[in-house]
Amino acid sequence: MSAGSNIKPQDVEGLIELFKSSNWDEMHVQVGEFELFLSNDPKATGPGRAVAAAPAAAPALTAAAPVAIAAPAASAAVAHGGAATVAIPDGLIAIRAPNLGTFYRAPKPGAPPYVEVGQTISEDTEVCLIEVMKLFAPVAAGVRGVVREVLAKDGQMVEFDAPLMLIEPAK
């Protein structure tokens, strides 16, 4: 397991706080395969494949990410039971939510989804975004195989540990 896979959303948040409280123009952090580039220059494109670029006014991970949609009271259905209790069919593996948040299939509105049903993925493939209070974190598949079903709905809240996608693992 690479060091990058140990980076948690809280860690990213901590780094952003650090950047905000500093008077630096840019910050570039690389830990294993994890890479974070923060800049106060809205035109900055980063030193390479940036996870996200921070706009000048509000240094937060929003530039490359969709806008959070909070469900209004009227449309938020009240129902029993969490998604975490869904049965997983034999032979398939669920990619589960690493934390509660809003699920996004694409890196930004209008962009093609990270993955489509039928697509072959590897452990490192980013499959979706999960957002908590405007902090967007990509989720890596963690498994090699083929996407068979996307269970979570785009723009909807997913609970911690909820199955997001079903993967048929590679033999």
């Binding site: 129902a79 969490g82 934390n99 509660l100 809003t102 908590v132 209070m133 609970e159 911690f160 540990d161």
Partner: peptide, 23 residues
């Protein structure tokens, strides 16, 4: 009326995270 799993067992990652709660 509804239950939402906000995080794993440790309080730090669930009951003690203001952003998770407000989200």
């Amino acid at each position: 009326d509804r239950t939402v799993v906000i995080g794993p067992a440790p309080s730090r990652l669930s009951y003690l995270d203001p952003k998770l709660l407000v989200h």
